[in-house]
Design a binder for these strands. Structure first.
Lengths: 212, 212
DNA sequence: ATATATATAGCGAAAAAGGGTGATTCTTAA
DNA sequence: TTAAGAATCACCCTTTTTCGCTATATATAT
């Protein structure tokens, strides 16, 4: 038996969800709320396994609510259901800790299936949503792919690494057991290879291109 | 009509896929290969919309193959099907440009449905896979969550931003229409709040904690 | 054998950054 | 109304960085 709480501002939809859940073997609707007032109290009084969460609601929106729920009830699975296809919503929902993200066009059976899946550790997603997630994921990894080969030598990489860690020339010299002037030499060469002319630029470029 | 090419080393499975595809209205198997020798040539000779790709194959594996396909035929959708649940495989498959990632346990109908979905721009994923993707995604964003509140003021944030971009004090001053000494003042305060004492340290911390 | 890349090192000058102190104005919160 | 924080600017002084030029030893590859 999966206990489900529903957050949905549309009265008709909310009551439909409640009905579907209670009519189907293995599901029980332990709460159905139009908004997130007394969110935590309601969840505390009516323990559940899965929350079916609408994003667009008066007052606190579904993403804020998800964040709150995951903070206080990390074991509750939150299944987002929405009409929004925007990257920002998807992105924020994931960050908030949502376990699944489905579009509202799903059939009644689709909802039950999705609820079952989140309960058993899966993350049901409308394929279109999944595509956006993959794209967002790839976009976040881009710097790795873009990493240009700057042909830094081993010693230069070490110097750059130490520079990124915030060391002064003096500290780098003693760290690598070389003279101060050698460090200066290396850094000159690094700047030339990276086409920069200050430490901050070099560090910025090094981190963003995952050189270190 | 969706034209599909199959890469699968298991003879029985491969022939089954071919049969299922050709027996079903709307699908056509235009190629079925046990490995990736002559991969590009085969795809060139037998144009297709979707590639059903096995990961585990003799010779070139499915992820390498996906990378190659997406480089030369960016419009072909690659649907990975595998028994592997490991993060590394999922991660690399996404990076390689796979459009979907399903487990081999899927039913025949599941395959056809998944193929239809990739063709129409979706990314079908087994819910368990989707969960891993979300987790990987969140793991990559961790620094944002860890971002400590350093209580930088708006102006300080601007200065830090410009510092990260590699600007000198002088440049920052002219950029913000304030005096050189004001910039110094702000930077002093920034360093104090960030507990650092050099530009390189500040930049490193700012980027790693996604302060800018 | 000779050219190239790497790591090392030094000197000197100019520019930039870092740290201390103090002060003014303006806004906002107690 | 007073206190606190934000943003601005100035002066002084030290340290660090940056840049130009030079130079040597070692290894590697042509």
């Amino acid at each position: 038996m999966i206990n489900v709480t529903v957050f949905e501002d549309n009265k008709h939809l909310r009551e439909t969800f409640e009905l579907i859940l209670n009519l189907n073997e293995g599901f029980s609707c332990v709460g159905a709320w139009p908004d997130c007032s007394d969110l935590l109290e309601n969840l505390l009084r009516n323990p559940c396994d899965v929350v079916l969460m609408d994003i667009e609601m008066p007052g606190m929106n579904g993403i804020e609510a998800t964040k709150l729920i995951k903070t206080h009830f990390p074991n509750i699975h939150v299944l987002i259901q929405t009409v929004f296809f925007e990257d920002d919503f998807i992105f924020n929902a994931i960050c908030a800790g949502a376990s699944g993200y489905i579009l509202k066009s799903t059939t009644p059976d689709g909802y039950l299936e999705a609820i079952t899946e989140v309960q058993s550790g899966g993350s049901p997603m409308t394929p279109g949503i999944a595509r956006r997630v993959l794209q967002l994921f790839k976009a976040n990894l881009q710097p790795i792919d873009n990493a240009i080969e700057y042909n830094l030598t081993n010693q230069e990489k070490k110097v750059l690494q130490l520079l990124v860690e915030g060391n002064s020339y003096k500290m780098i010299a003693s760290e690598l057991f070389v003279s101060f002037d050698t460090v200066k030499s290396h850094i000159r060469n690094i700047y030339a290879k990276l086409h920069v002319n200050s430490g901050t630029e070099a560090v910025s470029l090094a981190i963003k291109n995952k050189l270190v």
